[in-house]
Computed example of a mutant assay.
Amino acid sequence: MKTPLIQNPKVMKIVAPALVGLFLLVTWQVLCMAFKVPIYLVPKPTDVATTLWTDGPSLLGALAVTLKITFLAFGMAVVLGVIAAFLFVQSRVIETSLFPYAILLQVTPVVAIAPLIIIWVKDPTIALVFCATLVALFPIISNTVLGLRSVNPGLLNLFRLNGATRWQTLVRLRIPSALPYFFGGLRISSGLALIGAVVAEFVAGTGGTGAGLAYQIMQAGFQINIPRLFAALVLISLTGILLFSLMAWLARISLAHWHESEMA
């Protein structure tokens, strides 16, 4: 007997959020029309859609610049975070000595240190990547460390009884056990890399043809072009959702055949 579409979990994961989003857009449109809200305060969804269509090429070009910084920062955060996590789990002394500094990077606002980084690093792109990396780094470190330490004690004792070396225990037990936590860190870090890139662009204030979406938002604000500002925000939000979905997809194809967290 076939399962009705409305009871299909895979279908509902798409349909339910789409219906909620459609309801919110219709409500937004109706309220703006009913109360005659000026476009320079809150534009209607149709105004934003029109702006996305007319200004699409310039906004997508700016998005490409922001994505370049995002992906470079995300890649650096993954590499540095994994290396730091492996270093931390080698010794409790190392973790106790260095982990507070990783927390320090997380709690320090990027807007406070970005001006210094931009002054110290002459290349604007490298400076922006460095700022975004600092924002995206901590979830990779913390989740990977947690995963590497969250090993089943029984399995760990079994490895020791069979004379497994430290390397064999790491590769065959600790790393597989850490993968669900690692992918959870990727989901968080990917969005933070995008946020870090946009914030760094705001602080840098870079303009011209090579500017990212942050410059488009600032320019729209100065010109009181609110539909264009909303259009840029929509692109940033959709990009963040796509990045999260991509990380979720990677987790699914990597873990679905053996870990319960991704089994249907």
Rank of each mutant, 00 (worst) to 15 (best):
Gly154Cys: 08
Phe86Trp: 08
Leu128Ala: 08
Thr108His: 09
Thr96Asn: 13
Pro180Ala: 10
Leu63Thr: 14
Glu95Trp: 01
Ile175Gly: 14
Arg174His: 12
Pro45His: 03
Pro115Phe: 04
Ile119Leu: 13
Thr66Ile: 01
Ser142Arg: 04
Ile141Ala: 02
Val121Tyr: 00
Leu134Gly: 13
Val171Ala: 13
Pro124Gln: 06
Ile141Gly: 04
Gly147Trp: 11
Leu170Glu: 14
Ile94Ala: 12
Pro153Ser: 01
Leu179Phe: 10
Leu128Ser: 09
Val65Met: 10
Gly75Ala: 09
Thr70Met: 01
Ala164Arg: 07
Ala85Gln: 08
Asn162Glu: 14
Thr165Val: 04
Ala73Val: 07
Ser91Ile: 12
Val82Trp: 03
Pro153Arg: 02
Leu60Glu: 03
Ser150Val: 00
Pro176Ser: 05
Gly147Gln: 08
Val129Met: 06
Phe88Lys: 02
Leu128Met: 13
Ile140Gly: 06
Pro153Asp: 09
Phe99Leu: 11
Ala73Tyr: 03
Gly61Ile: 06
Arg160Thr: 13
Leu72Val: 12
Gly163Thr: 09
Lys122Val: 07
Ile175Glu: 11
Arg174Ile: 03
Phe74Glu: 00
Asn157Tyr: 14
Ser142Gly: 02
Ala127Ser: 14
Gln106Ser: 04
Phe138Ser: 01
Thr169Phe: 08
Tyr101Val: 02
Leu155Met: 15
Lys68Phe: 01
Phe88Tyr: 08
Val93Pro: 03
Ser150Tyr: 02
Val93Thr: 14
Leu59Cys: 00
Ile141Tyr: 10
Leu155Thr: 04
Thr96Phe: 09
Pro124Ser: 03
Arg172Cys: 02
Ile83Tyr: 11
Ala85Leu: 12
Ile83Thr: 15
Val79Leu: 15
Lys44Ser: 15
Pro180Tyr: 05
Gln90Met: 11
Val78Ser: 10
Pro124Ile: 10
Tyr101Thr: 03
Leu104Tyr: 07
Leu80Pro: 00
Thr133Pro: 06
Leu128Thr: 08
Leu137Asn: 05
Leu158Gln: 11
Phe99Thr: 07
Met76Glu: 10
Gly56Lys: 01
Val79Pro: 10
Thr54Glu: 11
Arg92Ala: 13
Trp167Glu: 11
Leu105Met: 14
Leu158Arg: 00
Val107Lys: 00
Ile140Pro: 02
Leu161Gln: 11
Pro43Arg: 12
Pro124Phe: 09
Thr108Asp: 08
Gly56Asp: 07
Glu95Phe: 00
Ile119Val: 15
Val151Pro: 06
Leu98Thr: 11
Ala73Trp: 05
Gln90Glu: 11
Arg166Phe: 11
Pro109Ala: 09
Val78Asp: 06
Val110Asn: 05
Arg149Met: 05
Phe159Lys: 07
Leu161Asp: 12
Thr144Tyr: 09
Lys44Pro: 00
Ile126Gly: 04
Asp55Asn: 10
Pro100Ser: 05
Leu105Trp: 01
Val79Arg: 03
Asn162Ser: 15
Ser150Asn: 14
Ala114Gln: 02
Phe99Met: 12
Leu105Tyr: 00
Thr133Lys: 04
Asp47Gly: 07
Val82Ser: 12
